[in-house]
Amino acid sequence: MTALAAVATYLPDRRVPIEELADGLDLTPMQVRLFRRFHMLSDVCRDPDATPLDLLLAAVSNLDALRGQEHRVRYVLYARTFPVVVPYPLNPLHALCRLLGLDQAVAFTVTHHACATGLLAIDVAGRLLASDPDPDAYALVLAGEKAFTRDAQLVPETSIFGEGASACLIQHSGPRDRLLSYAANQRGEFDDELSDDTAKFQEEYHSSLADAILAAVDRAGLDLADLALILPHNVNLVAWQRLCRRIGYPVARVLLDNVPLTAHVFCADAFVNYTTAHARGLLHPGDRYLVAAAGAGRGATFSAMVFEH
């Protein structure tokens, strides 16, 4: 059974108030107030001098469990929101493997689920490890991108992207953070919906994510009440308030504290929230918790995973 062996993240110290981003994003004063007062977005993490490779290396440097175990890493997966994040011939993933002595690993990028690709990467890593002949093999799942274009900085009327990165060490089986279920609700009709049919996407958003969450809980053989915590994607607070009302889950048990501080950190949200939950002692042995994510681009994907801590 797939398990998380260790999780580490990196968030830049520099946090930019959303008001300072208004001119570059062509936001009106009313739109800025909407983000701050309605969506509860306050600051955005940014590291203007860091490259994508710098962000990933910073996250891996915090992954203490990897030190001395590099030889056990069989696969390195880079979960990305965008298919292309650097100009050719740069390749931050392969550069990272060379720098960290992971040349023996099979390294590749996963992008197909946009901001929900982090969960897809965990699922793919688990499948690869399940078929690997070495029971002690690891997979390393990375996430982290630059807010390098307007599309990579803003989800219209919904959220603002911040910068950061995460590194997650995956094993085939382990004593904690075992994956119980995974569900992905893919909506191919929302191809390029952010520019063509925003209203329809917003209308379907909550029901589609709710379906994924309920499917994952059901596949784990649980009820919503059995979940100690939900680790969300950090899109905005009001979206989660509405979703919790829809599914009948207490919003107080959704870890939303990072939303005003980091905004939406691409595929790294789940791991950022995991490290916060772990640091605060919010998860206890045997607790079941759910990780949720939504991604939009070439179609829309709504995903959820249930773990046992």
Rank of each mutant, 00 (worst) to 15 (best):
Glu20Lys: 00
Ala79Lys: 10
Leu56Phe: 05
Tyr10Leu: 02
Asp103His: 10
Pro92Arg: 09
Val73Tyr: 11
Asp64Lys: 14
His71Arg: 15
His94Asp: 07
His39Arg: 14
Leu90Ala: 11
His94Thr: 14
Leu66Gly: 01
Asp43Ile: 00
Thr81Ile: 07
Ala65Ile: 10
Val7Glu: 02
Ala95Thr: 06
Pro83Glu: 15
Thr28Gln: 00
Leu11Gln: 09
Gln69Arg: 14
Arg37Asp: 12
His39Phe: 12
Pro48Trp: 06
Val85Ala: 07
Glu70Asn: 06
Pro17His: 11
Tyr75Val: 09
Leu25Glu: 05
Leu56Glu: 06
Leu55Phe: 02
Gly68Cys: 13
Thr9Cys: 09
Pro83Asp: 15
Thr28Gly: 03
Asp13Tyr: 05
Thr81Tyr: 08
Asp54Leu: 08
Val85Phe: 04
Val7Lys: 02
Arg72His: 08
Asp47Met: 04
Ala59Gln: 03
Ala59Gly: 05
Ala59Trp: 03
Met30His: 12
Asp26Pro: 01
Pro87Thr: 13
Val86Gly: 02
Arg72Trp: 02
Val32Arg: 01
Glu20Gly: 00
Ser61Gly: 14
Pro17Trp: 10
Val44Gln: 07
Phe38Asp: 07
Val84Gly: 01
Arg80Cys: 11
His71Ser: 15
Val110Pro: 00
Thr51Val: 02
Pro48Phe: 05
Leu11His: 08
Val16Gln: 13
Ala58Phe: 11
Gln69Leu: 01
Gln69Met: 05
Leu99Ile: 02
Val16Trp: 04
Asp64Thr: 11
Leu93Met: 09
Val44Ser: 11
Arg98His: 12
Asn91Trp: 01
Phe35Leu: 09
Asp49Glu: 15
Val32Glu: 03
Phe108Ile: 08
Arg46Gly: 00
Arg15Gln: 14
Val85Asn: 04
Pro89Leu: 10
Pro17Gly: 12
Tyr10Pro: 00
Arg46Leu: 10
Tyr78His: 15
Met30Leu: 12
Pro89Glu: 05
Gln31Met: 09
Val16Ala: 04
Arg98Ser: 13
Leu96Gln: 08
Val106Asp: 11
Leu53Phe: 06
Pro17Ser: 13
Phe108Thr: 15
Tyr78Arg: 01
Phe82Leu: 14
Ala107Ser: 15
Tyr10Asn: 05
Leu21Ser: 04
Ala65Asp: 14
Val7Thr: 15
